[in-house]
Nucleic acid binder design. Sequence first.
DNA 1: TGAAACCTTCACATCAATGTGAAGGCAAAT
DNA 2: ATTTGCCTTCACATTGATGTGAAGGTTTCA
Lengths: 123, 123
Amino acid sequence: MRIGQLSQRTGVPTRMLRYYEEQDLLHPERADNGYRHYPESAVYRVQQIRGLLDSGLTTEIIRRILPFLDRPDEIHLHPQCLTPELADLLEAEAARIQQRIDCLARNRDAIHVYLAAVRALRT
Amino acid sequence: MRIGQLSQRTGVPTRMLRYYEEQDLLHPERADNGYRHYPESAVYRVQQIRGLLDSGLTTEIIRRILPFLDRPDEIHLHPQCLTPELADLLEAEAARIQQRIDCLARNRDAIHVYLAAVRALRT
DNA sequence: TGAAACCTTCACATCAATGTGAAGGCAAAT
DNA sequence: ATTTGCCTTCACATTGATGTGAAGGTTTCA
């Protein structure tokens, strides 16, 4: 599919889709006339990128972990592809992600506790 | 405590603590000489702000939900303090937070699955 | 064939969060 | 008492993610 349709289906402006490509997060094929051509899977990929960006990860981090965020494929399953440094990076990033989850969950709970408390008072 | 010590204990630069004050996230007392004076609880509060910022919330959103993120106190427990619009805002923000959590948890799991798969291959 | 709706690249603007530094007042210790 | 280190405000710079618009090529369709 072309960029306009991908933009429509994801709600992400074409400007941003080109930006993500510049940041090495997307790698669409090019048609003869130069138009970008995305596979169906790009829809999920873009949603994933947006979700991670919106959760505070930078494009730089996303670029580095993105190859490992899908079903482990043969390309990356060869043990020698996982250098100790890369494993450390993934572990560290998973830990940072967990920290975010904990923080968000705490505050989500606090909001719900508050709402429940006020509503209980109103009975 | 003064700004320098709060900075040391939280790891947040004084520049940022003043910025958060400007954004109405912190409200330190002032001593006669104009120095800011923070209560002990400011340490947690700053960590909380940092965590939320780092998780993609803006200072604007944080400012609006911050009063409700602590133990519900008498000030805010009066039902008339919770206008329907405010309740909607809190619900909506809780939902957005939940979306972030889901996205982060999915990708954290994917990292762990990948690491486990590679390590299993290496046995 | 010509208009409408897409596509391309290039470039400058904005916004929030943060860095950095200057110019000067206050305080604690040698 | 002077130095050292903290504090104050003011102000300009930077960085990452976006918005916006210009100038021009392509596809589709009436």
